[in-house]
Amino acid sequence: MTMSRKPRIKTGPILLGLPAGLFLLAFFLVPLGYVTVLSFSDPSWGIANYRELFNSRLFLMTLGNTFWMAAVVTGLSLLLAYPLAYVAATSKGTLGKTILMIVALSFWTSYLVRTYAWMVILGVQGPIPALVALFGHSPPPRLLFTSFAATLGMTHGLIPFMTMALFAVMKRIDPKLMDAAGSLGARPWRVFWHIYLPLSAPGIINGITLVFITCLGFYVMPVLLGSPREQTIAGLIGDRMEQILDFGGAAAMSLVLLAASLGLFSVYSRYFGMDRLWGGRI
């Protein structure tokens, strides 16, 4: 008996993927389309919303403030997460395990809980102002509802993300490479500079992209901890919707925010590849 087979159209993957595809089309892409249309149509058709935005000093300042805050938070969390991930990836003892445990715990804890914690700590009756007052600063400085509080809260909130992105790459670095560099005459800091740092660079890039994009759209912490006078775009969009019911303006702002997020992401995925971005979260 002889068999021959024609290539057939694969129905398997289509059937498997269809539910997810249709779901996201109907409940993700369509609402996103609504935002786009809204920005050009409410209250009247045209680009008036955008013209207004880019003539608004408040909007441009907020935009600048959002990017600045995202940059500061990203930089700080990289600075703090790098040694954390390094020790977790290289130490064999309990310290590494403890770090991963705390990072995971922090990761799983709601932003609202962490926000609440900072409200207590930085609040007027909290330990930090009390401590500052102890050193003779009277009355204690107002820390809560400032950009400082928002930056601190966000940095604290995003260190786990950054650590995981870094750790995912670092744990794959072969420790023998460092030994090899040492045997070739490199002093420890040069081993780090010439070997470890370049090898961990993909993790740094993943972490920076992830944290920066998250910061741009962050709503909860800037609104609850930050200063009402130095808002972020996300907060401004919320105000427009809730307080002045200016949906067209909110939509236009949303699209600017969306464009920034997607733009950054496409630069990232163009040069570094999409699949590795969330390697650290798994």
Partner: peptide, 26 residues
Amino acid sequence: RSAFNLLLMTPLIVPHIVMALGYYVY
């Protein structure tokens, strides 16, 4: 396949506040 993959991943990139507005209207 790669477009499908991209579609599945975009909800991670799009800020929630943008989607909040979209859902509010839709």
